[in-house]
Design a protein around this nucleic acid. Structure first.
Length: 876
DNA sequence: GTTTATTTAGTGC
DNA sequence: CTCCGACGCATTCGG
DNA sequence: CCGAATGCGTCGGAGGCACTAAATAAAC
């Protein structure tokens, strides 16, 4: 409120937005390099480092394999700013090195190089970023190699390099094909590895590869620096990670990752990081993995931080001695609590230090270790009960106090639950796989193409293992103790542990389905509107139920156990069923809306007190009597499913399905499903390789067709924009969402109906901000009906803009005001899955969808007719 | 001190 | 849940 | 035959509503 004015201004120009935020961020990373980034400031962080690192670090440690690196000693951190640019370096050093490297497995070599280089020049800037500051350059493999190796064109890029370099490749292309694609680059990388290996990724490379080989040498030489972790980064990892992993090392890696958008580079950096951890501090690998994916335990264990934005604001405020209001306004400006914390800290050093002393004791080292951070986060998660919030805040403050540089930023983001650095689970799995490939004793194949393939297969293996047993507590130790090769034998599908469910791709029209499945046999089944339920029966006879996100829902559905028992055939012992649990009206034998299902209690549910009955609609079987069916084609799985279970009217049903390839029939079936209160259809491939169950994959083998996806169908409304919310993260500087209202002609009021935050392109976001700039008003109009507590926007607008919005359904809302009194005496109507479609220039606010129309649309959803009888209303 | 209302976090879609 | 955008890979098009 | 353009799938990250549960704050 107070600052609306400011906000307004602030928003005005496109601005800064990015400038500010981003810059802030990145800079540190690299530019800062000079400053402190990595190993930072000598002073503080280094304390630890400097001492031991150098010498022994590696050596002493018995780190596995250390072969290569050992030597690496830290050249010292590159902290020295000075050298930064100056080092011309590139040329000289690298050249030499490069040669070594380029050839086959340069990896090892690189290390040395690096080492020697100690003096190292710095060379390359990081890739992405422009090199601006960073100085590194040096030998990164990429760069160098090309040049030298081939000798051919050396690209001079060293300096510039960066992304552009890719282009250069052509030049050399002796092996054009390869180069062109990533394959080449991969190759390049290979060469480089340092301590770690490099990775590469091109899948298809294979074909080309051959040619490449021919030209092999040539090909390899031409590496593309872009996807190879810069030596500077490698060196920093080596310096920071000795026998244990400092949180600073992890954060340094995060910074490097955040500074780029290239996926392959991110993957490589993470691979290098993990490799270093595996070889020098394997006991910390699990912690690092968890911190990278921002989780504390397997999902099904239900360990949650229980920390949200308000607690974080409080923690930051207290830790830095500022007041919460100020922190909030900074948050609005920066769009990231992590940045706020970081900025605050730098301005409040003394306070921070004071805190440090208080929480860590003087003796405590100032350097946070990942193990400690992880442990503390877990403590925060398990804290509960009276005054637990204060305790959590204190713990957060304690951690914050020990943070230096960017650590505070990432710590806050971890607490917030989103790292937002462009790296998430899939990347972690692939990097883990790659790191272990490099770590295992057998050498990588010499042939580039083969290497790529080995890496890809490893990634696929790890991902698949994880999907079948989503538990890093088991996977990571297994990898460390027994290696990649036997991982699949040790970690496999188990009844009692949730499998990542297979997902479906949205489809915009039936014709799209036909295009995709032409020539294949497929089945169409109802898409029920309930909750995904993966029902397990263990060997012990125990039954467990997991949600779509692998959450243990067993306690929520005690009644389902009995239903299942009545549906199992005598020969059926252990199994994993894939189903949808749907709210069911036993009196009328009808499906009830999702909103009804969601009112079921979740904990301590006693069978006798259940108010909302459920019917299970089974549609797949993943495991039966100790046997995995994941690779069995759907057609067979369905058959087995049908044999192993029997229908129990109203309690356990098989999803209604039809096999047809006729457009008309599909259309009819779709209409029918909608009529039966379902969301639409699921269309699945029945046979062939593509018909296996692919956990977690949103493959094209399962498609979903919902009425609202289809043009012209679904609920579309024209609503008035009355307010907006400041964007966060990548929406910093524009509005992240808007508050919409419908028009009530009776009293000429605007009644809020929903917020909207998706469907906008980036251009839309910017133009909407500009277009609405003039409509900003300091206070809401008296004729706006909204819920003060809940949807108060950051900025209010006069009613001018009208947008077409699409939604899947209309719902009774506890907070929105649309059509109040028409459907429910006190509650309004809102929209389910609202998204922006387009601006309606042709409509004035008074022409927007009105309250009666909203009420009619709500009643028009036949499912609600059912609802009407339960209750609150009388309309019918 | 208990009971009730409000706020926050987490999960579903 | 919906949607967008960037990347990487593959295929196609134009010279 | 090659580089440019186009198409497709993956991954990550913006954002939505409703509801329960837990903790705090407010009332009695």
């Amino acid at each position: 409120m107070p600052n609306q004015g400011n906000l307004a201004n602030w928003l005005q120009k496109p601005k800064t937005t990015k400038a500010s935020a981003p810059e802030a961020a990145k800079p540190d990373a690299q530019s800062s390099s000079p400053k402190a980034v990595p190993t930072p400031p000598a002073s503080s962080q280094s304390p630890a480092l400097s001492p031991k690192p150098s010498t022994e670090k590696a050596a002493p440690e018995g780190a596995p394999q250390g072969m290569f690196d050992k030597q690496l000693r830290p050249t010292r951190k590159r902290s020295q700013p000075s050298e930064a640019k100056q080092s011309p370096i590139a040329s000289s050093p690298r050249t030499s090195d490069s040669e070594e490297a380029s050839p086959a497995l340069p990896q090892r070599k690189r290390t040395r190089l690096g080492a020697r280089a100690s003096g190292r020049p710095k060379a390359k800037a990081k890739i992405i970023v422009d090199s601006a500051s960073s100085s590194d350059e040096s030998f990164v493999l990429g760069a160098p190699s090309p040049a030298h190796s081939d000798g051919g064109n050396g690209s001079s890029e060293l300096s510039d390099t960066l992304e552009k370099s890719p282009k250069d490749k052509p030049s050399e292309d002796s092996s054009p094909a390869i180069l062109g694609t990533s394959a080449a680059e991969l190759a390049a990388k290979l060469t480089a590895a340092d301590t770690a290996p490099i990775k590469a990724k091109g899948k298809k490379a294979t074909k080309k590869a051959k040619k490449a080989k021919g030209a092999k040498s040539a090909a390899q030489k031409a590496p593309d620096p872009s996807y190879t972790t810069p030596d500077e980064v490698l060196t920093t990892f080596a310096e920071l990670i000795t026998d244990t992993v400092p949180y600073a090392a992890l954060c340094y890696m995060f910074e490097q990752v955040e500074a780029t958008t290239k996926r392959l580079l991110i993957l490589d950096m993470l691979t290098q990081f993990f490799y270093r951890v595996i070889t020098h501090a394997p006991q910390d690998l699990l912690h690092c993995v968890y911190l990278c994916i921002n989780r504390l335990a397997p999902q099904y264990e239900g360990v949650e931080l229980g920390v949200g934005e308000s607690l974080l604001i409080k923690a930051v405020a207290e830790a830095t001695g500022r007041n919460a209001t100020k922190v909030k306004s900074d948050l609005a400006k920066l769009g990231d609590i992590g940045l706020v914390a970081k900025e605050s800290r730098s301005n409040q050093r003394t306070v921070a230090f004071a805190m440090t002393a208080k929480h860590f004791g003087s003796s405590a080292s100032r350097q946070l270790k990942v193990g400690y951070v992880f442990k503390t986060l877990k403590q925060i998660a398990t804290t509960s009960g009276h005054a637990s919030m204060k305790l959590k805040v204190d713990r957060i403050k304690g951690l914050l106090a020990g943070c230096q540089n960017s650590e505070a930023k990432y710590l806050m983001r971890s607490l917030e639950g989103k790292l937002r650095i462009g790296l998430a689970e899939q990347t972690v799995l692939a990097a883990l796989a790659h790191a272990f490939v490099h770590h295992r004793s057998e050498p990588l194949p010499e042939d580039l193409e083969d290497r790529v393939q080995v890496l890809q297969e490893a990634a696929a293996t790890v991902k698949s293992v994880y999907n079948e047993l989503p538990n890093y507590d088991k996977i990571v130790p297994t990898l460390l103790d027994q290696g990649l090769d036997i991982l699949p034998q040790v970690c496999k599908l188990t009844a009692g542990i949730p499998v990542k469910p297979m997902l479906a791709h949205p489809t915009k029209a039936i014709s799209e389905v036909l295009d995709r499945f032409e020539g294949h046999t497929f089945t169409c089944e109802y898409k029920y509107d309930g909750e995904r339920a993966q029902i397990h029966r263990l060997e012990t006879g125990e039954t467990m139920i997991f949600s779509r996100n692998a959450e243990d829902m067993t306690a929520k559905y005690p009644d389902v156990v009995d239903k299942i028992n009545r549906a199992v055939q005598s020969t059926t012992q252990s199994f994993i069923l894939d189903c949808e649990a749907v709210a069911w009206d036993r009196v009328q034998d009808k499906i009830l809306p999702f909103q009804v299902l969601s009112t079921r209690k979740r904990k301590d549910v006693k069978e006798s007190e259940i108010t909302v009955q459920v019917c299970i609609f089974a549609f797949d079987l993943l495991f039966l009597n100790g046997q995995s069916l994941l690779r069995t084609p759907l057609e067979d799985r369905q058959k087995i499913l049908g044999d192993a279970f029997q229908r129990v009217q109203g309690d356990f049903e098989f999803a209604k399905a039809v096999r047809t390839s006729e457009v008309e029939e599909i259309q009819t079936f779709l209409d029918e499903s909608i009529h039966d209160n379902c969301e639409g259809l699921m269309v699945k491939m029945l046979d062939g390789d593509e018909a296996s169950y692919e956990p977690s994959k949103r493959s094209r083998n399962w498609l979903k067709v919902k009425k609202d996806y289809i043009m012209g169908l679904g609920d579309s409304l024209d609503l008035v924009v009355v307010g907006a919310y400041l964007g966060r993260g990548k929406r910093t500087g524009v509005y992240g969402g808007y508050l919409l209202a419908c028009y009530n002609p009776d009293n000429e009021h605007y009644e809020t109906i929903c917020k909207i935050g998706t469907g906008f392109s980036e251009v839309d976001l910017a133009s909407h901000r500009d277009l609405l700039q003039e409509s900003i008003i300091a206070q809401p109009r008296s004729y706006y009906e909204f819920s003060d507590a809940a949807n108060k926007p950051d900025v209010w607008f006069d009613p001018k803009m009208v947008w077409e919005v699409k939604a899947a359904d209309l719902s009774i809302s506890p907070v929105y005001k649309a059509a109040v009194g028409r459907v429910d005496s006190t509650k309004g109507i809102s929209l389910r899955f609202p998204r922006f479609i387009r601006i309606r220039d042709d409509k004035s606010p008074e022409d927007a969808t009105n309250s009666d129309q909203v009420a009619d649309m709500y009643h028009g959803q036949k499912i609600n007719a059912v609802k009407a009888n339960d209750g609150s209303d009388d309309d019918y």
